[in-house]
Simulated scan of single mutants.
Amino acid sequence: MKVQYDIQFQPELTQNAWQQLKQFTDARIALGRVGGSQPTKPSLEFQLAHAQAKDAVLKVLDVQALVEQLAKLNSDILQISSCAEDKDLYLKRPDLGRELSEASRQLLKQYQQQHQAEYDVLIVAGDGLSARAIEDNAAHFIAELQHSCVNEGWSVAPLVIATGSRVALGDEVAQILNAKMLVMLIGERPGLSSPDSMGIHYTWNAYKGCHDAMRNCISNVRAAGLSEPVAIQRLMALMRKSRQLQLSGVKLKDEHEVIVEPFAQATAKRIF
Rank of each mutant, 00 (worst) to 15 (best):
V124D: 00
E102V: 11
E68S: 08
F46M: 08
L48T: 10
P11F: 06
N151C: 09
L96R: 00
G32F: 03
N16C: 13
A131I: 05
A27R: 15
K109D: 12
P94Q: 14
E135S: 10
D76P: 05
S75I: 01
A49L: 02
L91M: 14
G128C: 03
G32I: 00
E45C: 06
S43Y: 13
E99K: 04
L70I: 09
A84S: 09
L21K: 14
K59V: 06
G126K: 02
A139D: 01
Q106S: 04
L129R: 00
Q106V: 14
K59T: 11
A30V: 08
S82M: 09
R93A: 14
F24Q: 01
Q52N: 12
H147V: 02
D76M: 04
Q52C: 10
S37I: 07
E45P: 05
I134R: 00
V63W: 15
D55A: 15
L66V: 14
N74L: 01
G153E: 07
L73V: 11
E68T: 14
D55L: 11
Q146V: 13
K87I: 12
I29Y: 09
E102M: 10
F9K: 06
D76Q: 11
P39T: 06
K109W: 08
D55C: 07
S37Q: 09
V121W: 06
E118S: 14
Q8V: 15
V67M: 11
L107V: 13
A103N: 10
L96D: 02
A125P: 04
V121F: 06
E152K: 13
E152W: 09
T14R: 02
L89N: 04
R28I: 04
Q116R: 13
Q15V: 15
D86E: 12
K92S: 14
L58A: 08
I142V: 15
N16D: 15
D136P: 00
F141E: 01
R33M: 03
V34G: 04
S75M: 05
V60H: 10
G32K: 02
A71I: 12
Q10S: 15
I77F: 12
E102A: 08
D86L: 03
A51F: 02
A53R: 04
Q52H: 13
T40D: 14
L66R: 10
L108S: 00
R33A: 10
R93E: 11
A56G: 00
Q110M: 01
L13S: 00
K22Y: 11
Q15E: 15
L96P: 01
Q47F: 06
P94K: 14
L145V: 10
L100M: 07
Q110C: 06
L100I: 09
E144N: 07
K59Y: 07
A139Y: 08
G35K: 01
S75G: 04
F141H: 02
Q15W: 11
F9D: 01
S82I: 12
Q146C: 08
F9Y: 15
L129C: 02
R28L: 05
G126S: 07
R93C: 12
